[in-house]
């Protein structure tokens, strides 16, 4: 596997907000098919890091490569078209559309106005939407407005939308926040199943969930990579312990589980 070229590579990426460096010479690379967890205390730059990859933010320095070509200067939609999908920290679904229509928008390989006006969804796509609705248990709600779903249902709908989009690289920001234990477990299973065929990067605070993923962990701190390795190794790294000790809440999260 190591011989493979990285699917995603960040080289010395730095982002500053008014003199505050949210990312400092961040280096990170993902092999194709890898499942990777990213953790870090609040303010470590996790969301900024996703913003840079998906084109929302332009780094002051450094470069981002996807399949060997730079993503800099590309718009969000172009990057999404290249095969990078993103789930947001707080669930973001289209409130005034039904879950089915939410999924139909995500699934479509067609994205120009003319395609949408004159081309319909094919049978395979419809089946996929139906299948995904069943997977996330929203068949009953398929025709209600998504704005009326519960928090957990929205989370699942958004994950389903990400899967429907079928990107090569999935960037998943806090997928289990507000989910029940059973749902959390199912989410972990889902992400594990997706890895291999897809490359998955998960940002999460829930340590039990991360352990469940059995994936290599990258620890971000103050905008750069503090250490990388399997969960057990990272957990015992003195630097990581020190960083997390600074914040009581996170320490509890680590010990709770």
């Amino acid at each position: 596997m190591t011989a493979l070229k990285p699917l995603l590579e960040l080289r010395d990426v730095s982002v500053s907000f008014d003199g505050f460096w949210a990312l400092k010479e961040l280096n990170l690379s993902l092999r194709p098919g890898e499942l990777r967890a990213v953790i870090g205390p609040n303010g470590a730059g996790k969301t900024t890091f996703l913003d840079v990859i998906t084109g929302k933010l332009k780094p002051q320095r450094g470069d981002v490569f996807f399949r060997g070509s730079s993503l800099l200067g590309k718009s969000e939609n172009q990057i999404a078209r290249l095969g990078i999908g993103r789930k947001f920290q707080t669930p973001r679904v289209y409130q005034n559309l039904s879950p089915r229509r939410n999924l139909e928008l995500a699934i479509s390989g067609q994205s120009t106005p003319l395609q949408l006006l004159f081309g319909g969804l094919d049978g395979a796509a419809r089946d996929r939407v139906q299948h995904l609705l069943a997977v996330v248990g929203l068949e009953e709600q398929a025709h209600r407005l998504a704005g009326g779903l519960s928090h957990g249902q929205k989370q699942w709908l958004e994950i389903a939308m990400l899967v429907a989009q079928d990107p090569d690289l999935l960037l998943v920001d806090e997928p289990v926040a507000g989910l029940s234990d059973a749902e959390t477990e199912r989410t972990a299973d889902l992400l594990k199943r997706l890895a291999g065929e897809h490359t998955v990067l998960v940002i999460e605070h829930d340590m039990e969930f991360i352990r469940n993923l059995q994936a290599p962990v990258t620890v971000l701190h103050e905008g750069h990579v503090l250490c990388e390795g399997p969960m057990e190794q990272v957990q015992n790294d003195p630097r990581v312990i020190e960083v997390y000790l600074g914040s009581d809440a996170d320490l509890e999260t680590m010990e709770d589980h």
């Binding site: 939609n77 999404a80 973001r92 005034n96 928008l105 949408l116 939308m161």
Partner: peptide
């Protein structure tokens, strides 16, 4: 149709739609 869905989605959450391509 889906064109109309995109319009509604723009009203609801335009950045999200852009990240979808």
């Amino acid at each position: 149709g889906r064109f109309g869905d995109v319009l509604v989605a723009i009203r609801d959450d335009e950045p999200r739609l852009r990240f979808t391509g």
